[in-house]
Amino acid sequence: MTFITAFIVGGLICVVGQVLMDIFKLTPAHTMASLVVAGAVLDGVGLYERLIDFAGAGATVPITSFGNALVHGAMQEADENGWIGILTGIFEVTSAGISAAIIFSFIAALIFRAKG
């Protein structure tokens, strides 16, 4: 069942991105930034975690979950350490993903040549 909801919810988030690009004529960079901000706001009002409960990877794989994870890390640290936790915790959850992307991209640049 989660596979079906992951497919539908994940697909719909991508369609929202496509609509932002085609109808609102946003550049891809603007589209991605908007989706991340949307994810952060949705987590702020407590909706994104419910979407993850419902759709699993359909909510965690799109870039919107990056905003959600940033807020989550900040709030978790803030609960433990007070206001300063917002600064120290903001990359707590997302650091694995960002590190992985940096490291593997760098390795790829070492090994592969640009195509065309």
Binding site: T5, E49, R50, D53, F54
Partner: peptide, 9 residues
Amino acid sequence: AHRYRLQLP
């Protein structure tokens, strides 16, 4: 039940 997962909390 999956339809209640939005109210999981």
